[in-house]
């Protein structure tokens, strides 16, 4: 056994292993990744680790209204490390629950938008011709309008709601994925292995999704990391403007909006801390995304 391994040629890393190793070479990106994992874990674990359930009105004490950070509750004696809002809600708990909604909206819309965009993009590239130019016309048309405007139109017509925000984000984002997948698939389609698959008389669907698609994944990952940060920011903006998530399920953006009116009177913590949580999340994802772009870019590979 040991003889075989000794005689084996130079060990070749699998692509995933190589990407992981190169990714780890940049300490800033690793910090970003760790931050993001911690944030995601906090968001998922919110109901178990938050000091109180901020939406259970029986746990709130109006006496604790708008306490600055570090104050102790008059009733229960618990310490509010990040202060409380007007209803006496612990901001730390509010932020943990808010993160949960922000990340939920962003990741569900990301998943749906990638699925739709990928199917449309691969189909357009594989069949080409009129279908391709028709689909790309729609994509170009949509991308010529700012994302925030399209999302606002939809939400102004549909009304508030977590499901509606997700729908709006999917409609805004699918076009980016469709364009990305199509542009890499159109290059891949001309390669020999696709011709070979055709000669085997494999079905179109099988060639599209088993042969073509896996080779279009790297640029998709890069666009996805950029887009998920964009999705979180856009959702926060929409909720801040009052057209996003409902008051009963506040995301970080809505928490910031709730505290906004008190900002001018010096009660800064209701807005500032959710804002910091939002910013740290977005920056962490961007750090990861920047590094992934370098690692996955074939032009930078030796």
């Amino acid at each position: 056994m040991s003889q075989i391994t000794a005689n084996a040629p130079v060990r070749v890393d699998s692509p995933a292993r190589r990407i992981l190793r190169q990714f780890m070479e940049d300490p800033v990106a690793v910090i970003g990744l760790i931050l993001f994992v911690v944030i995601a874990a906090l968001a998922i674990a919110a109901p178990w680790i938050a000091p109180q359930n901020p939406y259970d009105l029986t746990q709130l004490d109006i006496m604790d209204s708008a306490l600055p950070p570090g104050e102790v509750s008059f009733g229960t004696g618990q310490t509010y490390w990040l202060g409380t809002d007007r209803q006496g809600r612990d901001m730390l708990s509010g932020i943990l629950y808010g993160l949960r909604i922000s990340l939920l909206v962003a990741s569900v819309s990301l998943g749906l938008a990638i699925t739709i965009g990928t199917i449309v993009g691969v189909t357009a590239a594989y069949f080409g011709g009129r279908l391709d130019s028709f689909i790309m016309r729609i994509v170009d048309l949509q991308l010529s309008f700012p994302a925030i405007l399209i999302a606002l139109i939809l939400l102004a017509l549909l009304g508030r709601g977590v499901d509606k925000v997700i729908l709006a984000l999917v409609i805004v984002q699918w076009a980016y994925y469709a364009r990305t997948v199509r542009s890499s698939a159109i290059v891949e389609r001309r390669k020999d292995y696709i011709d070979a698959a055709r000669c085997l008389a494999l079905s179109d669907r099988r060639i599209m999704f088993r042969h073509l698609l896996p080779n279009c994944v790297p640029p998709l990952i890069v666009v996805a990391t950029v887009q998920i940060a964009q999705a979180i920011a856009l959702e926060a903006t929409l909720s801040f403007l009052g057209v996003g998530v409902p008051i009963t399920e506040p995301s970080l953006g809505l928490l910031i909006a709730n505290g906004y009116d008190y900002l001018l009177s010096g009660v800064y913590w209701i807005s500032l801390f959710p804002g910091i949580a939002l910013v740290v999340t977005i920056v962490a994802i961007n750090l990861v995304g920047d590094r992934l772009r370098d690692v996955l870019n074939p032009r930078l590979q030796k």
Binding site: A233, A236, T237, L241, S271, I282
Partner: peptide, 9 residues
């Protein structure tokens, strides 16, 4: 990358 409204605040 930071949301516009947050920069404004």
């Amino acid at each position: 990358s930071l949301p516009n409204f947050w920069q404004g605040m």
